[in-house]
């Protein structure tokens, strides 16, 4: 099992996993996304994101199969923030059959190391409140709660 930066040839496999991730999140979320649109738009968006130089993708590969991936984005903050650039971890997914083996942690560590090499000291991410496994993973890596989004249905 190796973890490496994604190449163009990996995009097809990443797209499949990314779609599964998007659907999983949408189902956990009480605001459901339109799945027909997700299925249609997910691939072009991923391919476009891959070309963006502010984005980075890492994959976990075993026997030529991509079993997990993580995507990060370097964001420039608004002028009144002290910290100019922030590393945003946009997505992380490990195939269910390969979970509980520490792959999530390894992928996160790679992205954070990538940010560190770019002199970015702050990593951020968002997580659904009801997503306990993800929340615990991030806590174990030293992530702390910063802000919360609250919603009210009318």
């Amino acid at each position: 099992m190796i973890i490496r930066q994604a190449k163009k040839q990996d995009l097809k496999q990443i797209a499949e996993l990314d779609l599964v991730l998007a659907m999983e999140i949408s189902r956990k979320d009480f605001f459901k996304k339109d799945e027909t649109i997700l299925k249609k738009m997910e691939k072009p968006y991923l391919y476009r994101d891959f070309k963006n130089k502010n984005n980075i993708f890492f994959v976990a590969e075993e026997k030529k199969q991509i079993i997990g991936f993580a995507g990060g984005h370097i964001k420039t903050n608004l002028k009144f923030f002290k910290i100019k650039k922030v590393g945003f971890i946009r997505e992380i997914y490990v195939k269910p059959s390969h979970r509980h083996k520490g792959l999530g942690q390894k992928l996160m560590r790679e992205i954070i190391r990538y940010f560190k090499n770019k002199k970015i000291k702050v990593a951020q991410l968002t997580v659904l409140t009801n997503n306990q496994p993800a929340f615990k993973l991030y806590q174990s890596l030293g992530f702390e709660e910063n802000r919360k989004k609250m919603v009210r249905r009318i």
Binding site: V127, T129, F135, Y138, K148
Partner: peptide, 12 residues
């Protein structure tokens, strides 16, 4: 209101 999403941060 109920909690929906949490922003988390790690500072090196």
């Amino acid at each position: 209101f109920e909690e929906h999403i949490v922003w988390m941060r790690q500072i090196k």
